[in-house]
Design a binder for these strands. Structure first.
Lengths: 293, 293
DNA sequence: CCCAGGTTATGAATTTTAATCATCAATACA
DNA sequence: TGTATTGATGATTAAAATTCATAACCTGGG
């Protein structure tokens, strides 16, 4: 059974005669007759019968033409959708988020993005947090917001903005008055981080481990807001992008500190497949991300 | 876009490699590759990409393979259903009922029929009561129970059983004691019939009109039970198959009368298309209808 | 580090399939 | 009763799909 058989049944239903149906399909009447005869023989069942000079569908034929309605509708709509996809007029942009802080930033750009691209379905996921590199290659993601790029030519990394990681402490914290601090001074502190492996945490990778410091405790927190609240109530200190604090005017009880001679400068990148860089809605994202910074 | 493309996408999804998928479809890897390349060119969109030595679906490819799941499932199930239909193992038998009394009789056979053919969908309709002859030719009905056949060779009429029409009157009726009655004696009676045209009612066509009798009144009733109740309470008399009364032991307040020299013998037929006579479930119906009589 | 064994892609030849053309047979209508 | 219109059908032609042979590529193991 092939789509042509469904199309013939539908055309016959629409036009009434095989002759007329053949015009609809840009084929000859003979072609339709041959095709259906062939199908009937393979199925071992009669689909229509000539009655007078019109065709009457048998029960099997009726049934099959009902199936045809549904199948052809599905196929045609898929074809149309693919045509739009091919023209870049629609699509689904799946954006992977690689770190919690990235998500906090992305929220600030999401609203205007949705408004500018109302036709574009957008999905933001942190599902591939730990293997976004593979996910984007396997088309499970279309873009990844990350501040830990892997420059090996496989992906296109578009720098969005630079930022600095700062230590967040409560205003009443013993170190709050200091202009610069040393990693070693965190030895008696409780460290607040997102719940990922230490190797992926700049706090450990860039601050504590290079200085050989093991902190008093390490508490993981899912939500940035909660992390800031904990810090404000002196339950610990954390390393976060400075712009995060700037946005959080609702958190006046914490301040940011920098480490002496240890610049924690980072760059936020948007990673995409090379082939997708030119897509309009990717370009828009890049431009607005930069102007936002 | 053809079914083969959907099948290739599904086989690839199942087996992982095109080589393995080709076995599933009993084709060569080359055939699958050519087909999909061709589709891609026509659609103007890439569906997969070779990554290392495996294929990775693009977003469009993912989308199309999802469509494929649905389309192929529909088509395969339709094919299976048609195979059953072809083998006569399933089907839908639409039985047309041509007179109310026929329906009363059919109810007695319906239950065992449903039990014998659990797979068979049965629909009983009186929708085509007035044109069942055309309906069966157009495959809108598969069988018609009728006691008014049209023998012209177009349909196959299978006699099921003979029966007699009798006049139903209340036990206390003035005619109840009589052995035979005359049509003219109905002049002062109220006639109860089903709500169809007089030309189709044996009471008028065979009894009253030949005798030139116009009765006192004519009341139409949809339900046989109600008609019998009305007769029992002396609200009128009616002409019904004798077996109908035999089944209705719950109606002991009426009796049946016959007309003198006016045998109202009828035969119940099952009308089918010639091509369907051999179907098992039609044969069963015929045999059991006859034994029932 | 290269090679064996695996993958998909591709061009040309072949086979298979579908479409057409030219009819026929049946039917409906003037 | 002829004429026009319907679908069916067999032979021919045209098109499409499949295969074969092979290239190009990747991966893992000695």
């Amino acid at each position: 059974m092939e789509l042509i058989h469904f199309r013939i049944l539908l055309a016959l239903k629409r036009r009434g005669t095989l002759n007329s149906a053949s015009e609809l399909l840009h084929l000859t009447q003979s072609a339709l007759s041959h095709q259906m005869k062939n199908l009937e023989q393979r199925l071992g069942i009669i689909l229509w019968r000539k009655q007078g000079r019109t065709l009457v569908l048998t029960q099997a034929g009726q049934y099959l033409s009902d199936v045809a309605e549904s199948v052809i509708a599905t196929v045609d709509s898929a074809e149309q959708h693919l045509a739009l996809l091919a023209a870049g007029k629609t699509g689904k942009l799946i954006i992977g988020i690689d770190c919690h802080a990235c998500y906090e930033w992305f929220r600030t750009i999401l609203q205007p993005y949705l408004q500018t691209w109302p036709e574009l379905a957008i999905e933001v996921t942190s599902r591939y947090r730990f293997n976004s590199f593979e996910a984007i290659q396997q088309y499970k993601l279309d873009a990844v917001l990350t501040s830990d790029p892997v420059f090996n030519g496989v992906l296109h990394y578009q720098p969005l903005f630079d930022f600095e990681l700062v230590l967040i402490v409560a205003k009443q914290h013993r170190l709050a008055e200091r202009q610069f601090i040393e990693p070693s001074e965190l030895q008696e502190e409780t460290i607040l981080t997102y719940p990922v492996e230490r190797e992926r945490l700049d706090m450990f990778r860039k601050v504590l481990q290079p200085a050989g410091v093991e902190p008093l405790a390490h508490i993981t927190v899912e939500e940035t807001d909660i992390m800031l609240q904990l810090a404000a109530s002196q339950r610990g200190v954390c390393l976060l992008p400075e712009w995060l604090l700037a946005d959080k005017v609702k958190n006046p009880d914490v301040i940011s500190l920098r480490f002496k001679d240890l610049p924690l400068a980072k760059t936020m990148y948007l990673a995409t497949r090379h082939e997708d860089v030119q897509l309009e809605y990717i370009q828009w994202l890049i431009e607005h991300a930069q102007s936002k910074a």
